[in-house]
């Protein structure tokens, strides 16, 4: 049943968001702390456990994979609803501040990637995956 997969995904996100909200209250900030991250870890652990016991059959899996494959269209919709007009009217200071934050951060990535041994690049995408992208 596809809905079981969708529901498992929704349940993980709800629990993760709850943990993130509680964590936010505990440290006294007005933000969700890591909700999506907790949800992801929970999804990976829960589905792994269920799959080993044959409780997560192919149709159920499809419910998760469907939303995963909608990721890029959703992100494009997200891009088209950003407040770009306000970002542009912020003027040169806002632009410089945002851009420098990107550049300084990006410069750190090669250094941080070296911590705890190098990682292998992901293999080239298969043709099928490329077409999906």
């Amino acid at each position: 049943m596809i809905l079981y997969g969708v529901a498992a995904l929704a349940f993980c996100l709800l629990v993760g968001m709850f943990v993130g909200d509680v964590l936010g209250v505990l440290v006294g900030v007005d933000a969700n702390v890591g909700g999506v991250g907790f949800a992801m870890i929970m999804l990976v652990l829960a589905t792994d456990w269920l799959r080993k016991r044959d409780l997560f059959p192919k149709p159920t899996e499809q419910g998760v994979l469907f939303w995963s494959s909608l990721y890029i269209p959703i992100v494009i919709a997200m891009a088209s609803t950003q407040n770009v007009a306000e970002a542009v009217t912020g003027g040169p200071m806002a632009f410089l501040a945002g851009l420098s934050a990107l550049l300084v951060g990006a410069a750190l990535v090669p250094v941080l990637s070296r911590i705890g041994g190098r990682s292998e690049p992901l293999p080239e995408m298969a043709e099928e995956e490329k077409r999906e992208a």
């Binding site: 996100l13 992801m40 995963s68 959703i74 494009i76």
Partner: peptide, 24 residues
């Protein structure tokens, strides 16, 4: 409708879905 499709709820939903099959 783009607001709903690209809003935080569905965005986070899809992000979490991409984690399916990730190596912990």
């Amino acid at each position: 409708g783009l607001g709903l499709m690209g809003g935080a709820m569905l965005r986070d939903f899809a992000i979490v879905a991409t984690a399916y099959g990730v190596d912990l």
